[in-house]
Nucleic acid binder design. Structure first.
Lengths: 373, 373
DNA sequence: AGAAACGCCGAAACCGGTTTCGGCAACGTG
DNA sequence: CACGTTGCCGAAACCGGTTTCGGCGTTTCT
């Protein structure tokens, strides 16, 4: 197939079909071919079809770099990852990237990713990426409640889509998991197991999701008719170490909680540590629920009950949304929500001390690796 | 067309400095400026310095896209991630990307990443990326023992650097952690604790590292004067589930091992599961060592003793190596190795049953979160 | 029927660079 | 002093596209 015309091995270097090749094959000018492919109105439908057919047949695909210098659009999505974060994006990143690149490359687009060390750095990098046409728009991971990136990109007039709902998300395009609903479900789950004192360990409130999940927790309590005790809610917790401290504080209360709900799996790690340290049986003495469905949760014992977010799907959706927006800058806002799936684990059970054997038994039952995909 | 509505749109135009701007400011022609900056020999040193000064002062940086269409090089590194893998690249990816993008953007280069679903897909995508100038060369993560990507890229005459040592790594440029040395260290560590029956659970042998680590295990045994028992070595283990099966098999032996060394942390997860299932005290009844230093290891209890690989450093090094190669295609091979740091954890201890209290004590001692860095 | 209004395409400029070619001045040389 | 060299730079072509402009042949309108 490849050597039909040119048997010379070296000719493979020139394998790419250019618009000139195409125009010569069609006996048209470059300009006409270009306009035909780009949907200009001054091309007859007959010609347009002829051009598109030939393009397909010859496998022509424009060189996006060449387009970029004239049009300013390079068909690439930008993603700037901030590294300084406490809870590194580690767990969610791989799947997220998978979805993103899949969506992008399906339409011949590219993903440009960069890393930054600080907030100011992020803005500088984004401007640079736009200026150098390495990104036409951005996907904003881990949106903050009051996110400087949003203000910045609005000012720069650069398109973007948020992963998460910021303070004024009503005015932005976003994709997000309904983690507030998950928190309600978690409370319900625990309440139905018999828990009445359910604590909450939340993350730093500059994250957008911190607000949503906290509210979800409180909604859940209200819904189950449980009183809200401020002593049971500890926020602004950054990492497992701080979560451990919070846990000690909670368990030292006169009326300690029988269950702890964590805003993230990573925080739950700290709770586990303390439980082990104090010799508590997780799943009976203390029930724990996390959020994220991260690999970490799979490594804990007993398995952490958590809510799995399909980050690949999120990436794909965000990619598609951004491309749509870049194609038509005047398109209306796009807002999409998905639900996270509850993934039970041995970390939850009926509250209160049980006979040792029974507790063991319960753990066995609920801690089985999840089989149903 | 439609943006006629916004009249002041142009005002925002943060004028990128083009080579034309620069040439006009210097009263030179575009061509001269270009040659001056690109080190052509027919430019006087005086002029060259003048141009470089002005470029710096005006903040000129060439638009890589524009360069690309003429030179064919787009100043971007390619990374194709295969998703089908059992042990998804999840844990190592984030840090790795951080290093990679850091190295790249420090020199104004870009990282283009794509994902593929299969091996054939990967090759197809790589060709496509080269053809469309989205990547000048590639970084090959998770090199296989007999890697089709290497053969393919050699054939295509495309530059690349391996993360890992393949079968004939002597002829390739690579960066790798000396995991074989780590395996020796692990055996030594266990032997010094008093273990004599040390088992090994290895991963699929198509991975390059599987060979190295297996050999390291055997070298370690020899070095410690321990006999090699084929029954204690199980290979081709893909995931935690299979590792669990292997563990059951090992513990069912007449003379079961007192310690299990795993090729990866992920596999160690399976061992943990079985230990918990059988009520074994990890760190006394059974010692476990992993490799990778992944976040998972931090989530296990007691902490998994493992070897931490600095993946960010790896990414940075690989990026630098590839850029060096792309700048000078005739450069000699570059080969670099680093050592992984042993990160002790509560998962190892002296072999054999101990009094319950003592065992607990040992766990306490060794399971403390690692404080030093 | 003549003029105006299309529909459709070619020609050429343009984008931001790189690279080839040729010419002019200064230089060395016999 | 005439004559090649050499050093240095301008002019222009080129890369692979996009976009503006103008002109030609048909319709349509009056």
């Amino acid at each position: 197939m490849r050597s039909d015309v040119k048997p010379d091995r070296r000719s493979r270097d020139n394998a790419r079909v250019t618009i000139t090749d195409l125009s010569q094959a069609l006996s048209l000018t470059k300009g006409t071919v270009s306009r035909a492919l780009n949907g200009y109105p001054d091309i007859s439908e007959t010609t347009r079809i002829r051009v598109i057919r030939a393009a397909q047949a010859m496998g022509y695909r424009p060189l996006s770099q060449a387009q970029a210098i004239k049009t300013g659009r390079s068909c690439s999505l930008g993603l700037v990852i901030e590294l300084s974060e406490h809870d590194a994006h580690a767990p969610f990143l791989a799947e997220f990237l998978a979805g993103l690149t899949q969506a992008a490359s399906a339409e011949g687009w590219t993903l440009t990713i960069a890393t930054s060390e600080s907030e100011g750095d992020t803005l500088r990098i984004m401007r640079d990426l736009i200026l150098h046409r390495k990104a036409d728009g951005f996907i904003l991971p881990r949106v903050l409640w009051d996110d400087p990136r949003i203000a910045f990109l609005d000012r720069e007039d650069a398109p973007y889509i948020c992963y998460g709902r910021s303070k004024n998300h009503v005015e932005t395009s976003y994709f997000d998991a309904q983690s507030e609903v998950s928190m309600v479900e978690a409370v319900t789950w625990l309440a139905q197991l018999g828990h009445e004192r359910i604590a909450y360990i939340g993350s730093a409130s500059h994250y957008a999701y911190a607000h949503l999940r906290r509210d979800g927790y409180r909604t859940g309590l209200a819904q189950e008719g449980l009183a809200f005790d401020p002593a049971l809610m500890i926020e602004e917790v950054l990492d497992p170490e701080e979560a451990a401290k919070a846990t000690r504080q909670l368990l030292a209360l006169e009326q300690p909680p029988t269950a702890i709900l964590c805003a993230t799996d990573t925080l739950a790690r700290g709770v586990y540590d303390v439980a082990h340290e104090m010799g508590l049986q997780i799943g009976s003495d203390l029930s724990i629920v996390g959020y994220d469905g991260s690999p970490e949760a799979q490594a804990m014992w007993p398995r952490l009950a958590t809510f799995a977010v399909d980050n690949r799907k999120a990436g794909a959706a965000l990619g598609a949304m951004l491309m749509a927006r870049l194609r038509d800058l005047n398109a209306p806002l796009q807002q999409e929500l998905i639900a996270a799936d509850f993934r039970p684990g041995g970390s939850t059970g009926r509250p209160g001390k049980m006979p040792e054997e029974l507790a063991q038994h319960v753990i066995r039952l609920t801690a089985d690796p999840i089989r149903n995909d």
